[in-house]
Amino acid sequence: MSTNIKYFGLLAEITSCREESLGNSPSTVNELLELLFEKYPDLKEKDFRVAIDQQLVTEDTQITGGEIALLPPFSGG
């Protein structure tokens, strides 16, 4: 199973894409972040939150599918 991830704001600059599919399927958010930090070391220094199906989640959240998004600090208005 592949994992689809959306990137927003400055995170999309670091990854050079707004959306991608990872070949592997991490079982927790923590595992996902480890994979992403390996692929994009610059992400480590950035402040961001993870949402699954538009709900903010914590690092120990299980990933059982759904739309994953990495969100930098919100700056609307």
Partner: peptide
């Protein structure tokens, strides 16, 4: 409303 928007809506300004 304005404070909630600023804090909780995923909008990003470049």
């Amino acid at each position: 409303v304005v404070e909630e928007i600023k804090a909780n809506v995923p909008v990003f300004g470049r």
